[in-house]
């Protein structure tokens, strides 16, 4: 992801206190598919965070945390659900231009970070 080039310092007012959304309650054993967002050098950090807030209804704090995870680790699991649910999310993310894939939850260490050279699936 990339930062703004010309708008100067961050002007967001952080009046947010990190609310937890309902998807947090769901855990991998119940619902075996993950929605993964991959890093790329084009999408703006602000845009990715905005998409997480407006599409999933995540708090600003949670959206930023997931966005930073994508940026730093190369990928982040941003939602869980049934196969149909995460596929629907993936299409929506593709609509926004985010690079999203779905994968079966492995119930633990999701290896295979795609960090780095923007490999595309």
């Amino acid at each position: 992801m990339t930062l703004s080039v010309a708008l100067g310092p961050d002007t967001r007012e952080s009046t947010q206190t990190g609310t937890v959304t309902s998807t947090d309650v769901l855990t991998a054993p119940d619902i075996p598919w993950n929605l993964v967002i991959w890093n790329d050098p084009v999408n703006l950090m602000s845009y990715v965070s905005y998409v997480f807030r407006s599409y999933f209804g995540y708090s600003e704090a949670k959206a930023n945390k997931l966005m930073m995870e994508v940026h730093k680790k190369g990928r982040s699991i941003v939602a869980h659900g049934s196969k149909e649910q995460v596929e629907q999310h993936a299409v929506a993310m593709h609509g926004y231009g985010l690079w999203a894939t779905v994968e079966k939850a492995t119930g633990g260490t999701g290896s295979g970070s795609g960090k780095g050279k923007g490999k595309r699936g």
């Binding site: 596929e87 593709h94 690079w99 779905v102 994968e103 295979g112 699936g121």
Partner: peptide
């Protein structure tokens, strides 16, 4: 075009 319309599964 592949970036605009990516595969939904990695492998």
């Amino acid at each position: 075009l592949r970036r605009l319309l990516p595969n939904v599964m990695k492998n």
